[in-house]
């Protein structure tokens, strides 16, 4: 019964995006997956929600700047379990071109558990959809 329910539930992942000091490039690509008819992410049952309390899949962009770190950690704590984290772009994964800067405290997996990485600067919308599908697979095992 529980298995059946989680099989049904996995088709409704709500997305929440955290901008951890990103340059906005990846955020624009994320917005295209929702707003541009070509990459309609709603087909998968996804929906971008405004509140962290409604989220299932967290999409993090940006290299985690020193100023934003505490806020990102707090936001992450507010997301109810079960949740899956996806790092979008090279910045949260490794720091990218900002690596070793005094203003950067990343990579982000030092602080919060990341499940899927989608590198790219920025990644293509199709690659982001790939990452979301990968995240849904992981999410199903946790439901």
């Amino acid at each position: 019964m529980t298995k059946l329910l989680s099989k049904i539930a996995k088709r409704s992942p709500w997305l929440y995006r955290i901008n951890a000091g990103s340059c906005n490039g990846c955020d624009v690509e994320l917005a295209t997956t929702a707003c541009i008819p070509r990459y309609d992410v709603e087909r998968l049952g996804c929906k971008y929600c405004g509140s962290p309390k409604h989220a299932d899949i967290v999409l993090i962009t940006g290299p985690l700047t020193a100023r934003v770190r505490e806020k990102v950690l707090r936001l992450y704590e507010e997301i109810p379990d079960p949740k899956v984290t996806v790092a979008i772009g090279v910045c949260p994964i490794s720091g990218g071109v900002f690596r070793d800067s005094y203003a950067i405290t990343g990579p982000i997996d030092n602080y919060i558990p990341v499940d899927v990485n989608v590198p790219g600067c920025p990644p293509r919308p199709q690659a982001i959809i790939d990452g979301i599908i990968e995240a849904i697979k992981i999410w199903e095992t946790r439901l």
């Binding site: 539930a9 709603e42 087909r43």
Partner: peptide, 21 residues
């Protein structure tokens, strides 16, 4: 001009919400 979610999407959303913390 999108495909959109299936018609039963709100039901799935509800089932999902009951399984969240």
């Amino acid at each position: 001009r999108r495909v959109g979610p299936p018609l039963y999407q709100p039901f799935i959303d509800l089932v999902k919400l009951t399984r969240k913390e």
